[in-house]
């Protein structure tokens, strides 16, 4: 897949874009998040007739919340809970919110958190330690 099949949209346009995909009869393939120095990048992949198309938004590290697409694609719930638990991204309007109990990790938010002060530009391995106070249970 060439990277130009990735459509970068502003956060406000996300739901509209996803709705459009849904209306065209696409299947939600995956939602994946990646931590970049400037924030969390969330990629939504859709499939139609074996062709992959992607929609991408960038969440800055200032505690911006992500709107849930679970009202459009019901199966997005699991992916969004996963992103919430691993990346510490707040998600609005989840159809089924596990409230951080989907993954039981010893390190809370292993990939860092958007709610914390922006992680220092350190090697990626150190970002885990830059998360908020660690969960002790």
């Amino acid at each position: 897949m060439s990277p130009d099949a990735i459509d970068i949209v502003p956060l406000e346009a996300l739901l509209e874009r996803v709705k459009e995909k849904r209306d065209r009869g696409c299947r939600l393939v995956q939602i994946s998040a990646a931590r970049l120095p400037e924030g969390v990048e969330v990629t939504y992949s859709f499939d139609l007739k074996n062709r992959l198309s992607n929609v991408r938004v960038l969440l800055p590290d200032d505690g911006t919340r992500l709107p849930s697409i679970s009202a459009i694609f019901g199966c997005a719930v699991l992916y969004e809970n996963e992103i919430q638990d691993l990346f510490g991204v707040g998600i609005d309007g989840l159809a089924l919110d596990f409230k951080g109990k989907f993954y039981r990790t010893t390190v809370r938010f292993p990939f860092g958190s958007t709610k914390a002060p922006a992680p220092p530009p350190a090697p990626p391995a150190a970002t885990a330690a830059a998360g908020p106070p660690q969960n002790t249970n």
């Binding site: 393939v29 994946s32 199966c75």
Partner: peptide, 24 residues
Amino acid sequence: HLKANGTKHLQRFRVRTPTFANLP
């Protein structure tokens, strides 16, 4: 989903496995 930035470590390695998609 792989992202790499030219170092020997991958920047992001993400797998969506079939069971995850079948759970809903």
